[in-house]
């Protein structure tokens, strides 16, 4: 167990380092610099001074070391676009928003998906099953931005059920969260249905029937756990996709989250902000995957926690 945790920790650190380094060189290779607009027409001396302020005059390798040293000590550096703000401050302000959106979407996806999946499996090959699965195909196919726009038009413009946009109250999180979660709910629903049907066809379910257990007891105690396994292993990739999906949702609903900041910073070449966000997102993702793997070994007694797998 300890070896497992330790092995995972090393691979997590390596992964984050790899992503951060790759991002560092990618964004640095991109033409342009953070001050292109600000210093248009400024004298070379001013530009040089500005560059020196952010160590941009040093060779790339040294800049990389300076930045990496900062990351290790938890300092992601100053923003190059937002005057006098550090990246840590920016992340501290926007991160809770993104986390709220992401977790709402995640919870919606899991609850909605597993519920409909179990129902469809139990009502296999009935109109209920066909209906739910048709909706699921729509959910998987429809891009979230189209869903979100539909949601806005129907629920906000026509029914006026939700506030338009922004991020003042937490009721604002519901509609974006739902729009973000639907494709994943659909996917989880299909995974649950298939897993459930497979498990319900197993011999040990017949044994459980022979013991005199009720349908409900069988589903909850004997089938659900096995049926959850494919869902659990999908949660890792789903979380990554939800994080990236939030970029679009944040744009549509004007939510000041980390995703919006990231896209803006990438276009503005606000190097430190871009890299800071990447580091934060990768760490979050690695941590989440670690938790998922850990829970997998608890869910399935046949899987022994060996390092890495």
């Amino acid at each position: 167990m300890i070896r497992f945790v330790f092995g995972r920790l090393i691979s997590v650190i390596l992964t984050i380092w790899f992503v951060a380094t790759l991002s560092f060189f990618l964004i640095r290779l991109a033409p342009g610099n953070p001050f292109a607009n600000e210093l248009r027409g400024a004298t070379p001396e001013v530009t040089e001074a500005k560059k020196r302020e952010y160590h941009l005059d040093l060779p790339l390798r040294e800049q990389y070391w300076i930045w990496l040293r900062g990351v290790v000590t938890g300092d992601l550096g100053p923003s190059m676009k937002y005057r006098g703000k550090t990246v840590n401050e920016i992340i501290r302000q926007t991160f809770p928003t993104s986390i709220a959106l992401g977790s709402v979407a995640m919870v919606f996806a899991v609850v909605l998906g597993m519920m409909t999946g179990v129902i469809a499996a139990l009502k296999k090959n009935t109109p209920i099953d066909y209906g739910l699965m048709a909706v699921a195909v729509f959910g998987i196919s429809l891009p979230s931005f189209i869903l979100a726009t539909l949601g806005i038009v129907v629920l906000v413009f026509w029914a006026r059920l939700f506030p338009l946009a922004g991020w003042e109250t937490y009721s604002n999180v519901l509609l974006p969260g739902l729009a973000l979660s639907l494709p994943f709910a659909a996917k989880i629903s299909r995974l649950t249905r298939v897993g459930m049907i497979e498990i319900l066809g197993e011999d040990f379910i017949r044994t459980a029937h022979a013991k005199g257990l009720s349908e409900r007891q069988i589903v909850i105690k004997h089938a659900l756990r096995g049926a959850m396994l494919p869902v659990v292993s999908y949660l890792g990739p789903a979380f990554a996709l939800i994080l990236t999906g939030s970029l679009v949702i944040e744009k549509i609903f004007f939510i000041p989250g980390l995703g919006t900041i990231f896209v803006q910073a990438a276009t503005n070449r606000d190097y430190n902000v871009v890299l800071g966000t990447v580091v934060v997102f990768s760490s979050l993702l690695c941590f989440f995957n670690f938790v998922v793997d850990l829970s997998y070994t608890f869910l399935d007694p046949r899987v022994k926690p060996v390092s890495g797998r």
């Binding site: 992964t15 990618l26 990554a240 993702l285």
Partner: peptide, 18 residues
């Protein structure tokens, strides 16, 4: 497994920026 854990679209966004 490791690549699965990467926020890929972020990298793609950076590539596209470049």
């Amino acid at each position: 497994d490791i690549l699965y854990g990467l926020p890929f679209l972020f990298l793609v966004i950076l590539i596209m920026t470049l």
